[in-house]
Amino acid sequence: MNIHNQQLIALSDGLYLDAFVVDDRDEVIFISLWARDGEMQHLFAALTLPITQGGYREKRVRLPDGNLQTLNLNRVKDMKKITTRLPRFTPVGEWVHTWLILPELMKTPYGSHEGWILSQNLLNWDALWPVVKTLCHLPLLDEWKNELAVLLHHSVKHLDAFGVFAYQLTLEPELIEPIIADAVKSGSLPIQTQRRTSYVYKGDAL
């Protein structure tokens, strides 16, 4: 089954998904769901009911490649719900499309050193670079981009996902500062003379 040429995966009878992202604990942080209104409301009810009363917090789905994926839905209460309805007359009837997404994925909190990117396309370091500069508390020069692709590779994590590509960027100051400082002192991250006096690391001019 396809809607707008996007393959759908059955989550349960009458309920489908076409994209999801999970973190390193298999917790769902984004999911795109399709169903008729009754099935969608049944899902939300099941996610709030105790397990003993027919509720659930976990689903296993089979991906197109044949692999099974566990989806833990424990964080649904923290997620923002965005819903739209398809036109009444479609090949599958009247359907509801719902996104559940953590608010942090929509807008990185000010001052945070952690951010997420969802994309329909695979992103390389060049595409991630503007976000890296925004998240890092130290000023990063554009001429450092290629060198930092190696030094900061551990700061970018590819999250398990289907239907989208997902990235988690974490630039913790206590980890980033010594990496940048050592690279500047060794000369692998060059600083032009006119910029030297303005680059400050922990209060000491480099």
Score class of each variant (00 low, 15 high):
Met1Asp: 11
His4Lys: 10
Gln6Asp: 11
Leu8Tyr: 06
Leu8Pro: 04
Ile9Trp: 05
Ile9Asp: 02
Asp13Ala: 13
Asp18Gln: 07
Asp24Asn: 13
Arg25Pro: 02
Asp26Cys: 11
Glu27Thr: 12
Trp34Tyr: 09
Ala35Gln: 04
Asp37Val: 11
His42Lys: 14
Leu43Ile: 14
Ala45Asp: 13
Leu49Lys: 15
Gly54Tyr: 07
Glu58Leu: 15
Val61Arg: 04
Leu63Lys: 11
Asp65Gln: 14
Asn67Ser: 14
Gln69Cys: 08
Thr70Ala: 12
Leu71Trp: 03
Leu73Asp: 07
Arg75Phe: 01
Lys81Met: 14
Ile82Ser: 09
Ile82Phe: 05
Thr84Cys: 08
Arg88Thr: 12
Phe89Ala: 10
Val92Ser: 15
Trp95Gln: 10
Trp95Ser: 13
Val96His: 05
His97Pro: 03
Glu104His: 08
Gly111Asn: 10
Glu114Trp: 02
Trp116Pro: 04
Trp116Val: 03
Leu118Tyr: 00
Ser119Pro: 02
Trp125Cys: 06
Asp126Ala: 10
Pro130Tyr: 01
Val131Tyr: 03
Val131Asn: 03
Leu135Thr: 11
Cys136Thr: 07
Leu138Lys: 14
Leu141Phe: 10
Leu141Gly: 00
Asn146Trp: 08
Leu148Asp: 03
His153Met: 10
His153Glu: 15
Ser155Leu: 01
Val156Asn: 02
Ala161Trp: 04
Phe162Trp: 12
Phe162Glu: 05
Tyr167Cys: 06
Gln168Phe: 02
Gln168Ala: 12
Leu169His: 09
Pro173Gln: 08
Ile176Asn: 02
Asp182Ile: 13
Val184Trp: 01
Gly187Tyr: 02
Ser188Asp: 07
Ser188Gly: 01
Pro190Ser: 13
Ser198Gln: 14
Tyr199Pro: 00
Tyr199Asn: 00
Tyr201Asp: 00
Tyr201Leu: 14
Gly203Ser: 04
Leu206Thr: 06
